[in-house]
Amino acid sequence: MARFAIKKQHVPIIASTALLILIFAAGSLRYTGFFSLQVLLNLLIDNAFLLIVAVGMTFVILSGGIDLSVGSVIALTTMLSAALIEQAGWPPAVVIPLVLALGTSMGAGMGAIIHYYRIQPFIVTLAGMFLARGLCFVISINAITIKDPFYVTMAQTRVPIPGGNFISISVIIALAVLAAAIWLAHFTRFGRCVYAIGGNEYSALLMGLPVGRTKVLIYAFSGFCSALAGVVFTFYMLSGYGLHALGLELDTIAAVVIGGTLLTGGVGYVFGTFLGVMLQGIIQTIISFEGTLSSWWTKIVIGVLLLLFILLQRLLSSRGEVREA
């Protein structure tokens, strides 16, 4: 059974992997100090929150939906955490579960509206985005700095790994989420139902799958991931601010698509999203190493990659479809 023919559904993920290796190799040849494990680890450290939120987004996009609220939910989480800890004096042990529950229920609420009232996910999560952003400013217009020792510890702890390199606690959380999500997507009924809905929602219903419950759970999971990313982001920034993670929904969607997930749903891998996040990270790193290139090149390069991957997917999915548009 050992066949080495490349399966069509693997093409995008192979492309992302190849691109990642290529860019890392090119960077290593061009810049001294680029070829090191720590550079790769720093990618993880700087993008831990993006990875977490992108994992949640992957499920949403796999089911054929979209979640525009993720960036705002992150901001709300940082803001709420900061306010409760610094201004109300609550202990982190209470605050963290609370914000996670809040993000989850916000996602579940949006999922319920999307499913039961049949309103486009785009619009519902847009409302969610406005709402969460607005609530941040209801709490405070200014940034709140966090000095709580627990958060500071979480932010500054370096977890050593063999070979003299290190990662942060956030990275451990992100990798745990990634592993759990891979398991969830590929080895549980919930995960397979997500794929089925993305493939054909009506068929999924006819096959007796719990479509409604799954859709609500998908958005709830995305909400949970956003809130968790918000907690990690709070560790990273040590502040709460309504303008945190502005436009992050775009980066997240881009990461998922570059990771090979089809925006129309049904096709993709959670691991691909990991690659997509790393690709975004490494492009940023390259651009900062280059020095003469400015930060906006990141957006342009990501946009071009987005275009290429969407075209690639269009090419792969249009096989046999000769009808004119």
Binding site: T188, R189, C193, Y195, A196, N200, L206, M207, G266
Partner: peptide, 22 residues
């Protein structure tokens, strides 16, 4: 009325997949 993106095996058995500890 099946899901073209899932494998043949899944399309036959989804909802009744053989499982162990979930």
């Amino acid at each position: 009325n099946l899901c073209p993106n899932l494998s043949v095996a899944e399309n036959i058995l989804i909802g009744r997949e053989p499982r162990r500890f979930g």
